[in-house]
Amino acid sequence: MLARIYKPSRNAMTSGTGNTKYWVLEFEAAEAKRVDPLMGWQGSGDTAGQVRLRFADKDTAIDYARRHGIPHQVIEPKSRRPNVRARGYGDNFAHDRRGAWTH
């Protein structure tokens, strides 16, 4: 049962970076999901797929996996340039705004 250690990416629907400051240890699925014939829900007998551990940094997550004998794979995050403007959207409503409001 292989575990993946990665840093989650930001939500595509927002410009914020919330919930991206930590590292996650997640187990890969040991068996495929199957559809329940009565209700149509998906499920499996693999309970390790429900485990998701969060760590403050990568080294702590790797140390945890090694101490517990969990084979792991580390996925490095792709860095991106932060999109921070000088005053940003809040400048549109600033009390010391200079110039006419154009929109």
Results as ranks from 00 to 15, higher is better:
L2Q: 15
L2S: 14
L2V: 14
L2N: 15
A3Q: 02
R4W: 13
R4T: 14
R4Q: 14
I5H: 04
Y6W: 02
K7W: 10
P8I: 07
R10W: 15
A12V: 12
T14W: 12
T14D: 08
S15F: 09
T17A: 12
T17V: 11
T17Q: 11
G18K: 15
G18P: 05
N19I: 03
N19P: 04
N19C: 08
N19D: 10
T20G: 02
T20Y: 14
T20F: 07
K21I: 06
W23D: 00
W23F: 04
V24K: 08
V24Q: 10
L25D: 02
E26M: 08
F27E: 01
F27M: 00
E28I: 06
E28Q: 12
A29L: 03
A29E: 12
A30E: 11
E31L: 13
A32Y: 11
A32P: 03
A32H: 09
A32G: 12
R34N: 05
R34G: 11
D36P: 00
D36G: 00
L38H: 09
L38M: 13
M39D: 13
M39K: 11
G40Y: 03
G40H: 04
W41D: 13
W41R: 07
W41A: 08
W41N: 08
Q42P: 04
Q42K: 10
S44G: 02
G45N: 13
G45P: 01
G45V: 10
D46Q: 01
A48L: 12
A48K: 07
Q50K: 06
V51N: 02
L53W: 04
L53F: 13
F55R: 01
A56Y: 10
A56Q: 10
D57C: 02
K58Y: 03
D59C: 04
D59Y: 12
T60H: 03
T60V: 03
T60F: 05
I62V: 08
D63H: 06
Y64L: 01
Y64E: 00
R66N: 10
R67P: 01
R67F: 10
H68C: 07
H68P: 00
I70K: 02
I70Q: 01
I70L: 08
P71T: 07
H72N: 04
H72A: 06
V74P: 00
I75W: 04
E76P: 01
K78W: 03
K78L: 09
K78C: 05
R80C: 09
R81H: 14
R81T: 12
P82L: 06
P82K: 05
P82T: 08
N83K: 08
N83P: 01
N83W: 08
R85Q: 13
R85D: 07
A86V: 10
A86S: 13
A86M: 10
A86C: 04
R87F: 09
R87H: 15
R87M: 11
Y89G: 02
G90L: 05
D91T: 09
D91G: 06
N92G: 05
F93Q: 01
F93K: 06
F93W: 09
A94I: 05
A94F: 03
D96C: 02
R97A: 09
R97T: 05
R98W: 06
G99C: 05
T102I: 14
H103K: 13
H103D: 12
